[in-house]
Amino acid sequence: MAGALETLCGQTFGAKQYHKLGNYTCCAMISLSLVCLPVALLWIFMDKLLIFFGQDPMISLAAGKYCIWLIPSLFAYGILQSLVRVLPVSEPDPSDAYKLVCNSLFAYTSLLAYATCKETQILFTSDAFLSIKEFFHFATPSTIMVCLNTTTLHYYIPYGVGAAVSTRVSNELGAGNPVAAQLAVGAGMVLAVLEAIIVSTALFCCRNVLGYAYSNEEEVVSYVSKMVPLLCLRVSVDSLLGVLSGVARGSGWQQIGAYVNLRAYYLVGIPVAALLGFLLRLRGKGLWIGILTGSIMQAILLAFITAFTNWQIQATKAREIIFEGQLSADNGLA
């Protein structure tokens, strides 16, 4: 849901409406904290839910205790994600380095202190509540875009490139520079293709030994070797998806991305996986081919949307949205 800030804050910064960045960030903190309430309630009764679904009582009890102790970090994580998403929008910041070398509490306090010392400082005002509806307009489809994608370790490489593309695209659209936004998209796609070639080539060359990272059983090693070509294709698709999703977030296409995700996976990917995996008895390979088919469909649709986008119109719309909100606020003060 914090992905909504990549659109709102990125385009606002590009339009030099710096005072609105803090407003959107506060709005995100409030909104995500509200969303954390039902999740926390779910975690409180996690042991009972697991038992209801047939889990072992001892395991359920341990998991329930773990979830309860995890609740405080849930709310802190919502605030942290708001800060992490908004700071790189304005300029390359050490936010990711903070996350790597610091624990979550220190990262939260450090980022908050940094944010309050900038021109775009974060101050809690009543205006933050007025932006909640606008935030959820982008946040809800952002969730659908992200939660259906792979969470494998490799995906974080193209996701990082996608985050950079999202920042550049949103900044340039907000500033009214469609050509620069289009160039940022092209640069991101070139990086995605190069990364896909390097990683997939390395995996394919190591296909006969990769299985030993998981097991010494020859059967497992042989099975992994047979699956590596599919893994290479999945890596390539993920690289493209990471950047294309960043373009969508930076352009404010979260709703389009959500529709593409749902249709690609639920109308194509899952039915193909069920057909190949269970009816044709291809088992694991069939399931993977099905999900891969959904990913390919998603990448194709997002690529077509990106390729046929009129960036001049996108820049005009972005500035209209930003300055329309500013005009409404000015009229209210008048």
Rank of each mutant, 00 (worst) to 15 (best):
I305G: 00
A63D: 00
V237E: 02
F53N: 02
Q312N: 15
D56M: 04
G250M: 13
G332E: 08
L276E: 08
L87N: 10
G246P: 12
R281V: 04
I296L: 14
G286Y: 03
T7I: 03
L262H: 00
V220W: 02
L49R: 09
F106S: 05
T12M: 01
A248L: 03
W69F: 15
F278S: 13
I291D: 03
T140N: 01
L292F: 05
V268M: 13
L276C: 11
A97C: 02
F124I: 13
L153E: 01
P178N: 01
G250K: 09
M227F: 12
T116F: 03
A113L: 14
L240S: 13
A196L: 04
P57E: 02
T201R: 08
L282C: 10
D127N: 11
P229G: 01
W69G: 15
K16H: 12
G332F: 10
A181W: 08
F323G: 00
I30Y: 02
Y156A: 06
T140G: 05
D96H: 11
D93L: 13
L183S: 13
I256T: 15
T201Q: 08
K65P: 00
Q254K: 04
C9E: 01
G78T: 01
L50V: 03
Y266R: 00
L8C: 05
K16W: 01
G252D: 07
A62I: 15
H19S: 11
F53K: 01
G269S: 04
H19D: 14
V260I: 15
L183Y: 06
A128K: 06
N103G: 12
V268T: 10
H154P: 00
I322K: 04
S126G: 02
E219A: 15
A4D: 06
L173W: 10
V39P: 02
F308A: 01
A4Y: 09
S82I: 09
C206E: 09
G325R: 15
S31I: 07
L333Y: 08
V169T: 06
A2L: 06
G284Q: 10
L34I: 12
T309I: 05
A334E: 10
M227W: 04
T293C: 14
R319W: 09
L130E: 13
S200Y: 03
A181I: 11
A307E: 04
I300M: 14
L42W: 10
A187K: 14
T7P: 02
I197T: 08
S126P: 00
Y259P: 00
A318F: 11
A307D: 00
V243D: 08
A40R: 07
V101L: 05
V221T: 14
Y98G: 08
Y214A: 06
T167Y: 09
I197S: 04
S170G: 14
D127T: 07
M1N: 01
V169H: 06
Y18E: 03
S295M: 14
S215N: 07
L173D: 03
L292M: 09
T125M: 00
H154V: 08
G78N: 06
L231S: 12
Y24S: 06
L83H: 06
E217L: 09
Y155H: 08
P38H: 09
L87K: 09
S245D: 08
I59L: 12
L87H: 07
K317D: 04
L32Y: 05
I79R: 09
L203I: 10
L70F: 11
A315E: 03
A181C: 07
A28W: 09
A28F: 05
L194D: 01
C26F: 08
F278K: 07
L302G: 03
I296W: 02
A213N: 14
L301I: 15
F75M: 05
